[in-house]
Amino acid sequence: MDLHWYLRTLEEVVIRVLSSSCSIQASRLEGLTGVWKLAAVGIRVSHWITYHGLALNVTTNLCLFKWMVPCGIHGHGHQVSIKGLVREGKLCIDHGTDLHHLDDASFIHITHKSLIEEFSQAFQLEYCYKNISAAMLYERKHSSLTK
């Protein structure tokens, strides 16, 4: 039960996602939490139950971010996105896929898939994906209301 380890591991997940999905070499800033300029990490803990949050700038419109001072820390406000770095001409390849021509939904899908894989590995979890139809959701909702 070490909250600093937990935060550093969440940061490591983001660093691995950026490296594995699009060859971006991200890093931490010593003494600060997050993967600066690309991701913010925050957690809430109550009775050793964590509620974690990750904000990863995948295709984010960052024009309003120039007016923000993240966590009150001056000098680190300029944010970037994965899509922005790719558009600037950085070499970004995902298993042979040219990311330069992907739409926003594809960028988000690739990043989401990589986040789940890296999170599962870092925290030694087994992730199982199951499609649920709208009819199944409707049935679950109504069966829970009648109990």
Rank of each mutant, 00 (worst) to 15 (best):
E139Q: 14
L62D: 00
S19I: 07
H76N: 03
V86S: 03
N57F: 07
I15Q: 10
S23G: 07
D104N: 10
L62S: 01
R28G: 10
Y138C: 10
S143D: 10
R16A: 07
G53K: 01
S27W: 02
F107H: 08
Q79A: 14
R28I: 04
T97D: 06
V45P: 00
P70Y: 14
K130S: 12
I82Y: 06
H100L: 03
S133A: 08
N57V: 06
H101L: 11
Y127T: 15
T59M: 01
G96P: 01
H142K: 14
L64G: 09
N61P: 05
H109D: 10
S81I: 04
I108D: 00
F107G: 02
S20W: 02
S20L: 05
G75F: 11
K83M: 09
A40Y: 01
P70A: 04
P70E: 05
Y127F: 13
L54D: 06
I24G: 05
M136A: 15
L18M: 14
D2K: 01
H78I: 07
D103M: 07
I116N: 04
I73D: 08
C71V: 07
T33E: 04
G75V: 08
K83I: 02
I24M: 11
I43C: 11
H101E: 07
T33M: 04
C63N: 15
C92W: 04
K113T: 15
I116M: 11
S23N: 14
D94H: 13
S120W: 03
R140C: 11
I108M: 05
T111D: 00
R28H: 12
M68S: 11
L29P: 00
L7R: 03
L3D: 08
T60I: 08
H78Q: 14
G84R: 06
P70Q: 11
H74E: 15
D2M: 02
S19L: 15
S143M: 05
